[in-house]
Design a protein around this nucleic acid. Structure first.
Length: 559
DNA sequence: AGGCTGTACTG
DNA sequence: CAGTAC
DNA sequence: GCCT
DNA sequence: GGTTG
DNA sequence: CAACC
């Protein structure tokens, strides 16, 4: 008498042992001395139902998860543990058929579907970083790497000033003296001009030069003096020379019809520099004309941009952001009581008015994007049901179905007849949309009427505007629990603050993104190694930046 | 000469 | 892939 | 555009 | 006790 | 949720 085949082995079968076929196999396992478990015991053999495996990789993950019959905790453990191995359930059937334990190698499977980015283990401690340990916690720049400490210090001092003045600037700024007004005005014009033309880096060049001059509180009197400032090179210095001599830069003050038009078009969500430039250079002067001449430029995204053109050019009072949050929080509680949504962006930086409403959605302990995505989907559905969401700006497959009627109404209004086909993506990592509070919630009637782009009359037919409440741009970004710090940094900004951090990361051979701080392995085919992604403070500290609260991240230029 | 923040979504 | 947006 |  | 990770 | 302020 031999021992039964599976004596002493424990098995875990995913995603569920409910299906009759699996039930049958379970009986066979137990008949052969094996045991079933529903959590991770030592040396448990983890098997995946073959219907969910294709070429050693998980497929039909949507179905897989809807059939999941274990607790969320287990899923979390399975995805986060890099050591674990998974095999196809057919291995077991084969063993039974041959009455012996076969080599499992051919039956190997991976749990993560497509995941071409980085699957990270949440609880990993930072890899050893002895090579640059000095930055940790001592809030001092390490001397070894910085040959340009002086410049850096100068710049950062200047930026502290700049950011403070920005905060106070919200009301009045007569205390600030501007000795180089002629220069900064010209540079600003050049910056705008090149940005409008889509010449990003030239524009950036002028923007940085502009900021250099703004933070230089003495009047500039010579080309030489200008040249000595950071980000001012021969070309700009010579232009400055000209301005000093003639009082202005020839051919710059004429208000340019084309630039105005570019501005007009680019204020529409979805219309960028390339598209606008194409239209303008072909003599188009209104959205209506553009629609006729270039219908294919008008994706449903752009059409929504058009519909809410005016609403989305209006700043949002800080208090209203909180109202939006409250509304979403309430809906979220019904979807998943442990999930959280928080305000980031300019709101978190303390701004009195915000261009849009940025939020981050997460669930403590949850690193599984699929779960988070489900929560987001349900939340969106509820918000849509409340008539809060007035238009989506990106979709996955499921939501594509839900919003199909809305989108088709829109494209039909624009004169298109093809029906909308939703994309194939299953998971939502973010959701951008237009949201409008119920009219009784109206906060302060904006008494500070801002100067705002208005649609030309002939373009106003596609638009929807309402004096009482505005439709607002709202962004929801998902965050894995283990990456919350990196996501908060990214989505709190501001842009220049992010650029600064990311440049500092590159200088150290690292890579900072919304996913975390990694040691970049660009050439070697190995995956980037995680340094830190959870702790906002530690990321900044590793990059040699003294921790600062969001209100102080309102910087201009680099730190 | 080549970089300039780095990533996700649309069509 | 280009274009757009964050 | 400027910087390395 | 609310905020942050 | 747990640790923190």
């Amino acid at each position: 008498m031999k021992c039964p085949l599976f004596t002493g082995l424990s098995f875990l079968i995913l995603p569920s042992i409910e299906p009759p076929r699996v039930q049958f196999i379970v009986k066979l396992i137990e008949a052969n001395g094996g045991s079933m478990v529903d959590s991770l015991i030592n040396d448990t053999v983890i098997l995946i139902n073959d219907t969910f495996v294709e070429s050693h990789t998980l497929r039909k993950s949507e179905l897989f998860h809807s059939e999941w019959s274990y607790d969320e905790e287990l899923w979390y453990k399975l995805v986060s543990n890099e050591q674990l191995e998974f095999f196809k359930l057919s291995w077991l059937s084969e063993c039974l058929k041959h009455q012996k334990l076969l080599d499992k190698a051919d039956f190997r499977a991976r749990l993560m579907e497509e995941d071409n980015g980085n699957s990270n283990s949440p609880h990993v401690d930072a890899i050893s970083i002895e090579t640059q340990s000095s930055a940790e916690d001592t809030e001092v720049e390490d001397q070894t790497l910085d040959f340009d400490v002086q410049t850096e210090l100068l710049k950062s001092d200047a930026n502290v000033m700049a950011s403070q003045s920005v905060i106070e600037d919200t009301s009045e700024s007569k205390s600030t003296v501007k000795p180089n007004l002629a220069l900064t005005r010209a540079l600003e014009q050049l910056f705008k001009k090149y940005r409008l033309q889509g010449d990003t880096y030239r524009a950036r060049g002028y923007q940085l030069a502009l900021q250099s001059i703004e933070s230089h509180d003495k009047a500039i009197t010579s080309e030489q003096e200008a040249l000595s400032l950071p980000n001012i090179g021969p070309s700009i210095a010579s232009k400055i020379q000209t301005i000093l001599k003639l009082g202005s830069l020839p051919g710059l003050n004429e208000a340019d019809k084309n630039e105005e038009l570019l501005d007009y078009f680019m204020a529409c969500h979805g219309v960028g520099a390339q598209t606008a430039r194409k239209w303008v250079s072909n003599g188009i002067t209104s959205l209506t004309e553009a629609l006729k001449a270039y219908p294919s430029d008008f994706t449903w995204n752009v059409l929504f941009g058009w519909r809410f053109y005016e609403d989305w050019s209006v700043k949002i009072p800080r208090e209203e952001c909180a109202d939006h949050l409250a509304l979403m929080e309430k809906a979220l509680r019904d979807v998943d009581s442990s999930a959280r949504i928080v305000l980031t962006g300019s709101y978190r930086r303390g701004a009195a008015t915000c261009g849009d409403i940025d939020t981050v959605l997460y669930k403590p302990g949850c690193d599984d994007i699929w779960t988070l995505s489900q929560i987001l989907e349900k939340l969106v559905l509820r918000l849509k049901g409340m008539n809060y969401i007035r238009c989506p700006l990106n979709l996955n497959h499921a939501l594509g179905q839900e919003f199909k009627p809305m989108i088709e109404t829109l494209t039909h209004a624009a004169g298109f007849h093809e029906s909308y086909v939703s994309g194939p993506k299953e998971v939502l990592k973010k959701f951008y949309f237009g949201g409008k509070l119920p009219s009784n919630t109206t906060h302060g009637l904006s008494k500070t009427e801002q100067q705002v782009p208005r649609l030309k009359f002939e373009d106003s037919l596609m638009s929807e505007s309402d004096q009482n409440t505005h439709c607002r741009r709202v962004d929801i970004l998902l965050s894995r629990w283990s990456q919350l710090g990196a996501v908060m940094i990214y989505f709190t900004g501001n842009d220049d603050f992010n650029k600064s951090l990311r440049i500092r990361a590159t200088k150290r051979g690292w890579k900072l993104s919304n996913n975390g701080l990694y040691q970049s392995n660009a050439n070697t085919e190995k995956k980037d190694l995680l340094i830190e992604s959870f702790d906002e403070r530690r990321i900044m500290s590793l990059l040699g930046v003294v921790w600062c609260p969001p209100e102080e991240r309102n910087i201009k230029g680099y730190i």
